[in-house]
Amino acid sequence: MADVVIVDYGAGNLRSVERAVVHAGIEPLVTSEASQIPGARALIVPGVGAAEDTMAHLRQGGLDGPILDYIASGKPFLGVCMGMQALFEVSEEGGRHECLGVLGGRIVRFPFGMTVPHMGWNTVHVDRPHPVLEGIEQDDYFYFVHSYHGAPADPSIVIGSTEYEGVTFPAIVGRDNVIATQFHPEKSGRSGLRLYANFLRLALEHGSIAPAATAAS
């Protein structure tokens, strides 16, 4: 059983995520085997591509149930880009697609007329401090590439936000044992590596990424 499991659901480029974890000194397991998920102490769902394909791959691979069970167990979870969007209830990308429903709200498109994808380095404003962001500066730069963004039902899940052409959207969301980024920390230089290292350290040393647990430790 591997401590750190990266879920491979056939969306291509997982190598950079794997390398970011290795950079933190941990050898992760990259797997499409649902049976590997329950034993993980830190679960990472990365992803690129479209919502419909992502959800289809997760369901066909029998991965959606184990991911939901894992999150319900309270162990630390990190979602990246499509791995963040999949946590919401519904994505409007290419129609209307049911997602995992861990977080209330929808995934919506940037308004037409804007340059999309939103591609490149943008600042993340930390709205609420979080232990996973320790050592990362306010309004630090991260690498984004996406055409849709989260519209949470509950604004209190927004940990960091980003503005693009007048639209402010959640860059980091989370609650309890779940944290997820719209940007790609594995492509965001030192700040992104820091985020991975923080997440992994908290998960493996404390078994929790929740702010309260860190305060108590």
Partner: peptide
């Protein structure tokens, strides 16, 4: 030109 759509469908337009 279908190559563009094949790549975008399989891996996303972003790449």
């Amino acid at each position: 030109p279908e190559l563009i759509a094949e790549g975008a469908k399989a891996f996303g337009s972003q790449c």
